[in-house]
Amino acid sequence: MCLAVPGKLMSIEGDDPLLRTGRVSFGGIIKEVNLSLVPEVIVGDYLLVHAGFAISTIDEEEADRVFALLDEIDEKNEAADNAS
């Protein structure tokens, strides 16, 4: 129910803050999405879309954190192995 899917903002239409919409590409499938909850977005941003609304932006720098954590763990384990 709280499913929200990431997509890339391709274009923005309208200036009324409530009615502003964007065309968002979900792996090539384009849908119209309401942008009233993410007034700051610009074309090219990745958005998290739920029930026809963008509810958040995807922070591309933070997106690698999962993998950075894995590398950190590996380094720590290696260091521990070398120390023992």
Partner: peptide, 15 residues
């Protein structure tokens, strides 16, 4: 819905 959906519902009412 939960808090996730609440703003969408409000936006519809405001519209």
């Amino acid at each position: 819905g939960f808090e996730t959906t609440a703003p969408a519902n409000v936006a519809a009412i405001l519209q």
